[in-house]
């Protein structure tokens, strides 16, 4: 178990100012709600979910970029939230993110050379010559010529930017890479290239990869195991090999296109959905064609229905 998430919850309290609070109650947004899973060394763990399902918050909480409300994240058995600053720095040395939208994750004032040198400088790795050598080697691996070192992010294409962001993370030689929508905003061809590059680098570096995306195909293509998130919860977790055949949660089947969603009362997009849908019962109950009476009052536990296949649904009996 290289990385383990235990009953992790991250809730946001949306406070209105005291005057506006007469009309509106403060909202609790359950971005991540009681999520548990464990990632073994060397695997590709995929997480799928629509926008607003809490994928990004999950990634940020795992990286300790925001505080958790409950639960824990364990790295090799050590709690990430109990780490002091030097332990945290060590943790960040071995667990690296690749964020979506490399447009904003690269400092517009730095040129690529400075961007790539930053992780090495932060962790005090090598002298100037060795750092140049590392960076040169990494550029080669991401298929960029050394002339790019002098360019600014604004002078790169989207795919090149994302490759630079990937290289920056890989320069620390991490054990785990948490890639949050690494291909969003890229056209299909570049998406395939970036994805193939990531998988190749994963092989070369012996990485463990957590791949987060809204795109089922992207995740299914690359992952050994896949978790499906819906409104902050994992609703199904199963192997990537025969994911489509074994998928049985109504939401997963909707994502796969084999089942329809019941047209629900139109709600606002994205995170706002949580405001109304997260009190009690299954969050998907209102859209679920198979919903039972119990679905509206008790939220279903994630339980194992068969070997390596976990589902959170009242309507599905264990095999």
């Amino acid at each position: 178990m290289i990385l383990e998430v235990r009953h992790l919850s991250t809730h946001y309290l949306v406070r209105h100012n005291p005057l506006a609070r007469f009309g509106h109650r403060d909202h609790l947004i359950r971005a991540v709600d009681d999520v548990s899973f464990a990632v073994t060394a060397g695997e590709v763990f995929g997480i799928i979910g629509e926008s607003g399902s809490g994928k990004t918050t999950l990634a940020r909480t795992m990286l300790r970029l925001c505080d958790s409300t409950a639960g824990d994240v364990l790295h090799r058995g050590r709690s990430v939230f109990a780490m002091n600053s030097s332990e945290l720095k060590q943790y960040r040395h071995s667990v690296q993110p690749v964020f979506q939208d490399a447009d904003s994750t690269l400092d517009p004032r730095q040129h690529v050379g400075a961007i790539l040198e930053e992780p090495l400088l932060i962790h005090g790795i090598g002298d100037a010559a060795t750092r140049r050598q590392y960076i040169g080697g990494m550029l080669e691996q991401i298929n960029l010529s050394p002339s790019f070192l002098q360019r600014h992010p604004s002078e790169l294409s989207g795919g090149q930017r994302q490759r630079v962001a990937l290289a920056r993370s890989l320069l620390l030689n991490p054990e785990v890479l948490i890639a949050d929508e690494p291909t969003s905003g890229l056209d299909p061809l570049v998406t395939t290239q970036v994805l193939a590059l990531m998988l190749r680098l994963k092989q070369d570096h012996g990485l463990t990869l957590i791949l987060i995306s809204h795109d089922l195909e992207t995740v299914a293509y690359a992952s050994d195991r896949i978790a499906v998130m819906y409104r902050g919860r994992i609703v199904e977790l199963s192997g990537g090999e025969d994911f489509a055949q074994r998928a049985s949660h109504p939401y997963t089947r909707f994502l796969l296109g084999v089942e329809r969603r019941v047209p629900e009362i139109p709600v606002l997009e994205g995170v706002h959905e949580h405001i109304h849908g997260a009190e009690d019962g299954c969050a998907y109950a209102n859209s679920c064609p198979h919903h039972l009476h119990v679905c509206h009052s008790i939220s279903p536990e994630l339980r194992e229905t068969s070997q390596g296949h976990l589902i959170a649904c009242h309507a599905i009996a264990p095999e």
Partner: peptide, 11 residues
């Protein structure tokens, strides 16, 4: 995003 990234790098 770039400050967040730098933080994630351990800065």
């Amino acid at each position: 995003g770039y400050v967040e990234s730098a933080r994630a790098l351990g800065a």
